[in-house]
């Protein structure tokens, strides 16, 4: 029976899912906007975020809030290191424009198999941070999902303010809009790239860590996240932050409503159908390709 109540619950679940898509996608769009490259290893930083949370929470018994922070910080450092070691040396080589992109494919394969080797192929499950559900006017919402929604929303707003208001954010936007001019102004573009990569990885890690109790953790979990992330980014407009948020919400809600209206096998069909439709009508995405 499809009732209004059920639809409202599913819309909320969809927004929660959308938060995850938005968090993953805004990391991708950030890298595209600043470094003008695609990062195929983004899903693996997402995966690493999941594993950090798993070990911190279930093995070491650290409180969930600290676990989230750990996942974000550790994956930030890993992301920055990977950029410094693997991507940095490939930038600015005439005729090598595609090599940073190709190296991210390599990093993706490497990290996936490393995770498989170290942690094995068994799926890891994480308990809810907070059990139970809240009820508003007869509409039930799990606390875990509310945590996901509010934490992601808070981080997104914080990130937005950071980009718009801080000195670093100003340097990042200047670099995205005109690299050479930014260098002339005294901005260390390479340092901006390293930190940008770290922030982007950390956002993926946050999404994975928040969702860990709902989805299980495994070495391949990044694949689906990356694919959905790319779809979200293109749907919203490559390089657009607003687009990544809106795109994520649209995809998430559409998927979760299609689960009740059609069936769960149809959710990817609906997501891709929306994606293809938007591309036919607006090839540059909802917000168009934009600079930061």
């Amino acid at each position: 029976m499809i009732t209004g109540k059920l639809i409202i619950e599913q819309v909320f679940n969809g927004l929660v899912l959308g938060c995850m898509y938005a968090a993953v996608a805004s990391g991708l769009t950030l890298i595209w906007g600043t470094m003008k490259m695609l990062n195929f290893a983004h899903g693996e930083f997402y995966m690493l975020g999941g594993y950090v949370l798993y070990f911190a929470l279930t093995v070491f018994g650290i409180p969930p809030a600290v676990c989230l922070l750990l996942a974000v910080v550790i994956v930030f450092v890993l992301g920055a290191l990977v950029e410094k070691i693997a991507i940095h040396p490939l930038l600015d080589k005439p005729g090598w424009e595609l090599s940073p992109l190709v190296v991210t494919v390599g990093i993706s394969i490497f990290l996936q198999n490393l995770a498989l080797k170290i942690w094995g192929e068994s799926f890891k499950n994480v308990p809810y941070f907070l059990d139970g559900t809240a009820e508003f006017f007869g509409i039930r919402m799990a606390y875990q999902r509310m945590i996901i929604f509010f934490v992601t929303a808070l981080v997104m707003v914080g990130f937005w303010l950071f980009i718009k208001r801080s000195k670093f954010g100003m340097g990042l936007r200047a670099t995205a809009q005109d690299r050479d001019a930014a260098t002339l102004m005294g901005i260390n573009v390479k340092k901006i790239y390293t930190i940008t990569f770290g922030i982007s990885s950390a956002m993926a890690a946050l999404a994975a860590a928040l969702l860990a109790p709902i989805f299980s953790i495994n070495p391949w979990m990044g694949n689906a996240a990356l694919l959905k992330g790319f779809i979200t980014v293109v749907l919203g407009g490559l390089g657009s932050f607003e687009g990544a948020i809106l795109g994520g919400m649209i995809l998430g809600t559409a998927e979760s409503i299609s689960v009740v209206v059609l069936s769960s096998e149809w959710k990817d069909v609906v997501a891709f159908a929306i994606f293809i439709l938007v591309l036919i009508i607006r090839p540059s995405g909802l917000f168009g390709t934009k600079e930061w």
Binding site: G171, A174, A181, E291
Partner: peptide, 22 residues
């Protein structure tokens, strides 16, 4: 070579993004 999506003030402030001008 201005930063087209930044305001005039922001463009000017980026010019001070160094230990000499900040």
């Amino acid at each position: 070579r201005l930063f087209p999506n930044m305001t005039v003030t922001e463009n000017l402030l980026v010019g001070a993004y160094n230990s000499r001008g900040w």
